[in-house]
């Protein structure tokens, strides 16, 4: 059975003195590293380490039927697995509401920014390419949202298209890269003892009253999600959005470096 290693009192006293674990400032990320192409059976993959949080993202590309309202356009299907190996507190079984939220928030950030050119995925009237994006949390220490979205974008940007030949998928022959348009990144904040913290670690998330994820590209907000039972003031939201735009450049560089660009 798990044991609470830390008290709210401890976290809040330290935050009053401006101290965070790993000697971070309120708007600093932990160390990020991304390796792409680690699972060559998948059309794309990325292994992300964000502090002690580790997330593996796999992309599979399959043929399917178009959505009735989007003929000639492919679809992105995103899922997240909070694997029981990642934390004592993750239970095996069907997707929890938490894992569904993670996958949907990451999905919206990517979809709204048009990272994948879904129009390029049409094959003919009845056939399109569908892009399956699976987010696998291998070790949990907070902020799955940003680790997952970094991995998702890196995996998509390095995904290779299988060949389509007369109703058949031929995966040994790749037809160049999946067509993408730009990059989106997300910044997740937690409100802990009244302080707004970027990239909360596991101990900080334990006492988060509220959580906010802001996905942006260079100029626009692309998706947002407020989570947990607490609230944010307008000023807090403004600050979080400003920080998200500020961080975009650095996060984009990390992704670009990982894809060898």
């Amino acid at each position: 059975m798990s044991i609470k290693m830390i008290t709210e009192e401890y976290v809040s006293e330290r935050l009053k003195k401006g101290i965070r674990d790993e000697k971070r400032g309120h708007f600093d990320y932990r160390k990020i590293s991304i390796k792409t192409g680690t699972m060559p059976n998948a059309e794309g993959s990325a292994d992300v380490q964000l502090g002690n949080t580790r997330v593996l993202v796999g992309v599979k590309i399959d043929i399917g039927e178009p959505m009735p309202d989007n003929p000639g356009e492919g679809t992105i299907i995103t899922s997240a697995e909070l694997l029981p190996m990642a934390s004592e507190n993750f239970e095996p079984g069907p997707p929890s509401p938490e894992s569904v939220e993670v996958s949907r928030v990451i999905d919206r950030g990517i979809r709204a920014a048009g990272v994948v050119d879904t129009k390029s995925l049409g094959i003919d009237e009845e056939t399109v390419w569908n892009v399956y994006l699976d987010i696998y949390v291998l070790n949990y220490d907070g902020n799955i949202f940003d680790a997952g979205s970094l991995g998702a974008v890196a995996a998509l940007l390095t995904s290779k298209m299988p060949k389509y030949d007369n109703g058949k998928v031929i995966r040994d022959e790749k037809m160049g890269r999946l067509k993408t348009n730009g990059i989106s990144t997300s910044c997740t904040f937690a409100k802990v003892s009244g302080a707004i913290l970027l990239d909360p670690n596991g101990n900080e998330e334990l006492f988060a009253a509220s959580r906010l994820t802001v996905s942006t590209d260079e100029n626009r907000i692309r998706a947002m999600q407020k989570g947990l039972g607490g609230y944010f003031t307008q000023n807090e939201l403004d600050k979080a959005i400003d920080v998200s735009f500020e961080k975009f450049g650095a996060l984009r560089s990390v992704i670009k470096e990982s894809i060898g660009d």
Binding site: G58, P94, P95, Y132, D134, Y136
Partner: peptide, 18 residues
């Protein structure tokens, strides 16, 4: 014990999760 295959693990199509 839980043995599970990732839906992206196969050389062929996307697997069903779970």
């Amino acid at each position: 014990c839980r043995y599970m295959m990732a839906p992206f693990s196969s050389i062929s199509e996307h697997g069903r999760p779970g």
